[in-house]
Simulated scan of single mutants.
Amino acid sequence: MSILSELLHDVASLFFPAQCAVCGEPLARGERTVCTLCRATAPLTGFWREADNPVVRRCWGQVPVVQASGFLYFVHRSGWRQLIHSFKYRGAWRTAREMGEWYGRYLRESGLYGDVDCVVPLPLHPFKRCRRGYNQSEYIAEGIARQLGVGVERRSVYRRRNTQSQARKSRRERAGNVEGAFAVRHAERLSGRHVLLVDDVMTTGSTLLSCAAEILRAVPDCRISLAALAVSQRELGVGE
């Protein structure tokens, strides 16, 4: 960074200081999106290092996955919940991409995801995407794909039914709500490939599993792994 650039950065920071998306404190030079303290105390799951983890076990008997993991525990009444809601509902798509890159670095370093061929974001229905303006899972997928050195496949999977919100539904209701909601087109783009399906939040897993099952039904010669940025500790039966 040149002296002029540093000066402009300092002036901009003085009047418009960037804040940590978790705690709200000003970010120091070199920090991005989440401050060093919040990164050090983040509720990380560590699942990406384990071939057998609670997310993989959630898939047993439902969808045959190669790998599956979650990055953070979704902690209610916390700054992490606010961070997720900022890109899910308040337009902070850059935060989603930065979080994807952070997650992607760990996935790459684990060695368990080294043969992934492409990343597929869980699709939004066109009506919901139009209303929101973007699909936050696409930005998470972009960050992960950049770290894994692969491409993002946006056109092969789509949501053909505008489902109701999964919030406040029981596990059985969630599964019924997303049944038949997804479809595959251009199956040849996924044929023979190891696909990493990405979503922002996994609660019961109904949505991710429904989409993964449809991909495998339509493209039986592909392999599939799952990655959720945040997962529910309670639903996975992990002690708090």
Rank of each mutant, 00 (worst) to 15 (best):
R129L: 15
V184L: 08
T204W: 06
R193P: 06
R160H: 09
W102R: 02
Q19C: 13
D221E: 14
L197D: 03
A230L: 12
R161E: 01
M1E: 13
V150N: 09
G133C: 13
V178G: 03
G114R: 15
H76I: 10
F182Y: 01
R81S: 10
M202T: 00
A96S: 02
A92M: 08
A212M: 14
A212I: 04
I144F: 00
M1Y: 11
E173L: 12
C222M: 03
C35K: 15
E240R: 00
V75Y: 01
N177S: 10
C130M: 13
A213V: 05
G114K: 11
A40R: 10
V65R: 03
A181S: 06
F16A: 11
W93Q: 09
A145D: 13
L112C: 11
V11D: 02
T45F: 15
V157W: 01
S225A: 07
G30A: 11
L107K: 06
T95C: 08
A183C: 10
P126M: 00
Q233F: 08
R39M: 11
N135R: 05
R154D: 05
L14P: 04
D199K: 05
L226V: 07
I144R: 00
R97L: 12
V116H: 00
T203Y: 03
T207C: 02
C59K: 02
K169F: 07
